[in-house]
Write a protein that binds this DNA or RNA. Structure first.
Lengths: 211, 211, 211, 211
DNA sequence: CATGAATGAGTGTTCATTCAT
DNA sequence: GATGAATGAACACTCATTCAT
């Protein structure tokens, strides 16, 4: 009844359940801390079924992260970030606001994937290389260019662009990790908080006071 | 009071080698990714010897992190942080400078422990609880008090103290993680960088411009 | 009588491909060393298709060897061996020559089946029983009778017929295995070699020198 | 109580039981047909104990065959074969007698190893290479030299030495396989049979009748 | 008829842990 | 006090086999 006629296109029902189960399990116990048997149980399939679709446990990890990252970061780059950096922002503040909104949306949509990614990155050179080249490098390139643009326009202080970008990203990361992982249940009337975070950055990075 | 409560005071030579081996191994491959056999090999002792001192692998993790944290964070609290917050700082800027210096020193002295801690915290509720109650909570208490003090003095903006503290810690974390984990080999002529980070925070958190 | 007893006579195209694939695979990796999945891949059919025709993997082995043996040994018995022993051979030498030629032809035509058979026989009592009763026993019966005939005619030495037959078969086996499995690529100008093998047997089994 | 103080020399009691169990099991069901669990059960040890001594199942196979071959073929080469070919045999017949006796002794002493070896050789290139280079090649070298010596002395026919050797080995193999594997329970008053086998070879390989 | 999907029972192997010496 | 030997339980992964479509 459930449609799945396409040979190479549509993922099976089981396949989807496996991925979902793997995401939960990895997020809860980490990659090494999760047994394939547990994933199978959660997914309601036999263990062997997992290996039908993912030749190894590691392929399951990649299969969980990869497509999601392509779909999310890839499309985030395509849909959100590309415009982010291609649009001429009226002001540094507007840029920050857009960047924060997009980052928040991403992490809120896939908090478990972010957690898994963060946990496995330090131990997985291949994963790291992939992420760096496919996500971080493009982001850095464009982000730094944008920073330089604002510097040329005299909107922000003339510090080295990587430092400026790091200040921005650290502040955003602190905000996002807090909201998503530490205090996810708190009410989110946080326009005020966003305003303050933006204000903090705008002030902190404002150009040297001209006499 | 600071005397170890264990029956015999001095840790054996073997014990020290085991802990050192465990630290390296956990830092390289994670807790789950490390086999006790490998730790034994690195330490040059028999596998059984590990279990003489640490009843279980998990106890080894705690034995690695716990005492180190007591010794380091505990003593950091005792030696550095306590004064940090008890001293009346002449200025917010001086406070930031001292706090950053102390954090940097801590992480630079024990980068592997920080890495292990960061990796295992999300999956280990007991560890989390311990760290929160023994390290974070006291820090928060005192840090927030200090922030409020500066606010009363009109040195910084009147935002909610937790937000202010998070801005500070995020910025510091970004700086430290970058310096220690990502670009550890770069030259460290970074007084300039420290200055800018401090400046960034001071400006970002400066009180509302009075007319 | 020679008609297949199965319900439908003609083996499917798929069936033939399966058998051929199984023969190659079993010959290359042995029965246990071959996965049905591999056979399916080689045959270009789905794994399930194999089980349509052969209820179990073991049935596939029998289906590979059995009919082939019937077709080959059976027909060899019918076409070659029967005449072999029913014809009155003019001489022991002629008998040897015919026997060797027929054996060589059989093994050269189906080297992979011979290999599979040799590999599985030691572990498969049922197979063994079948081969013994259907192939070896008839052959022995007739072979021994023939030997006795030559002994009565005084053409060969009066040793126990089984011993004589074993000398013959060992020598032939040594020749055939060498030619087919060990040095299959060597040129075959081996009439000379055949002559010598025959000569070896004729001399070795010649009757006691009468004074 | 059982002595096993030497670290690298003496095999443990368990180790010996494992090897013995593996030999039986492999001989009965073949390498692929034997589960390590069954070997463990037969040996009366835990499965993990097997892997203490033999890192993989394949290492167990090699550990079963290798040392035995060194001990047997190696020492057979040293004790039996070396003299076999270095001694100047008074006659071709004496040579045959010595060779057959030595081969029979080897196979009778270790029939299961011979069986295992014969079964795995076709599928195991590494094993094959090892056996060929360590056992067969030296044997061939010396055997062929000995044949040539007898030919120079005019004791045997001037056929190509490999062919002569093959005739000898085939005949011996036929005798040995029959006695050891097929009719192991028959009484062994077989001096008569040995005599006939030797006679068969001597006659079959006797030099061309001079006028 | 042929198959894609699924699986229960096993596979070889590794693990943290125990204990007699 | 330290260990070599041993292990039960679990691990990731494979297998021959089934069945709805």
């Amino acid at each position: 009844m459930t449609r799945r006629s396409r040979s190479n296109d549509a993922p099976t029902e089981a396949q989807r359940k496996i991925v979902e189960a793997a995401v939960s399990a990895f997020a809860e116990h980490g990659f090494h801390g999760t047994a394939t048997r547990d994933i199978a149980r959660r997914a309601g399939v036999a263990e062997a079924t997992i290996f039908k679709y993912f030749p190894s446990k590691r392929d399951l990890l990649l299969g969980v992260l990869g497509p999601a990252l392509e779909q999310l970061v890839g499309s985030a780059l395509a849909r959100s970030m590309e415009p982010l950096f291609s649009v001429t922002y009226p002001s540094f503040e507007a840029f920050l606001r857009a960047l924060l909104a997009e980052r928040v949306a991403f992490v809120r949509a896939h908090p478990r994937l972010v957690r898994i990614l963060a946990q496995e990155l330090p131990f997985d050179a291949e994963l790291r290389a992939g992420i760096v080249s496919r996500v971080i490098a493009p982001f850095l390139t464009k982000g730094l260019a944008q920073i330089e643009q604002f510097q040329r326009e005299g909107q922000i202080v003339g510090w080295p662009p990587p430092l400026v970008l790091r200040c921005i990203m650290s502040t955003f990361a602190g905000y996002i990790l807090h909201r998503v992982f530490i205090a996810p249940d708190e009410a989110w009337p946080d326009e005020a908080e966003v305003e303050r975070v933006i204000t903090f950055l705008v002030r902190g990075l404002s150009p040297e006071r001209p006499a």
